[in-house]
């Protein structure tokens, strides 16, 4: 059940260039939230700016809701200034989250796309499912900190490999081998940057291409992706070609978050539109008409 409440800011920490991790006290929302769902959050007390902003839930810890956000415009700039003790109107959890039934899930994060996938990673860890995270960004500075932060939020280890992922996915013996050292491995992370300063040089889809080229028994049996639309479009096409089910977490300008304003639509396969807030934000990539989505 969704709720609307005054959420108290507990912490608002700079964790990367213009990237903040916001912790809010919101028991009813924390209790109900599932990975991939989102909340609507007013970025400041009072009526300005007029509209709340949608944020995917980055995680829940006890009665706290975690939101990872980057300063992009006026709303997020205001939110970055929210001090502990401030109360912000928030409603949620909203929308549909990820299906987490896969045995060999590959998470693909483009930049801030890591926000909902952090919650996914922790839930997969709880379920005992080893995951692969491909993380891409503009520069080392943009993504390394986020990966490390995600790693520290896991109970087990996030085994980060800058390159050479070809052999590194989900063979059971390999997982066991990795686990012989200190903490058990919960996931494997590989990275790309557009400037080559960290990991492989190029878009994050490079890593996915490698993963999808693995022999069928090692290949991911589900891809869970979040990032800019052009990236998601490329991911959807690659998965479709290999017949690997692909779930994408979508973003769109949104006024209400509850299905009333009809502002957040994207073109649906078979014509018409789907609402990101209701049919999404996580959707089967095949449910969208990517041909009508500009890249």
């Amino acid at each position: 059940m969704s709720a609307c409440l005054n959420a108290k800011v507990l912490a608002n920490e700079l964790v990367g260039p213009d990237v903040y991790l916001l912790r809010l006290a919101a028991g009813p929302i924390a209790a109900a939230a599932r990975p991939g769902q989102f909340v609507m959050l007013r970025v400041a007390p009072g009526d300005e700016p007029l509209l709340a902003r949608p944020f995917s839930v980055h995680g829940v810890e006890g009665e706290d809701v975690l939101i990872l956000f980057q300063v992009r415009g006026r709303g997020t700039a205001l939110l970055s200034q929210a001090a502990p003790g401030a109360k912000l109107v928030m409603w949620g959890p909203l929308g549909r989250g990820f299906e987490l039934e896969a045995k060999r899930p590959a998470l693909v994060a483009g930049g801030m796309g890591i926000a909902p996938l952090g919650f996914v990673a922790r839930k997969l860890e709880d379920k005992g499912i080893l995951f692969h995270l491909s993380s891409g960004g503009a520069t080392q500075e943009a993504i390394e900190g986020l990966e490390k932060k995600l790693g520290t939020s896991l109970r087990g280890r996030l085994e980060c490999r800058a390159t050479d992922i070809h052999r590194l996915f989900h063979a059971a013996q390999e997982a066991a081998e990795l686990s012989t050292s200190t903490a058990p491995v919960s996931g494997i992370c590989t990275s790309t940057t557009m400037d080559g300063s960290y990991g492989e040089k190029g878009p994050v889809t490079l890593l996915l291409k490698n993963l999808l080229s693995l022999p069928p028994e090692l290949r991911p049996d589900a891809v869970l992706a979040c990032g800019p639309l052009p990236m998601l479009k490329a991911v959807a096409a690659m998965c479709a070609e290999k017949n690997v089910p692909c779930q994408v977490s979508l973003e769109a300008p949104m006024a209400c978050g509850v299905g009333a304003c009809l502002g957040c639509v994207l073109p649906a396969a078979g014509g018409g539109y789907v609402r990101v807030c209701q049919e999404g934000p996580v959707m089967d990539a095949a449910a969208l008409d990517w041909g009508r989505i500009g890249a």
Partner: peptide, 8 residues
């Protein structure tokens, strides 16, 4: 179906 996005 309504208009194409962006709508708001």
């Amino acid at each position: 179906p309504g208009n194409p996005p962006p709508r708001i």
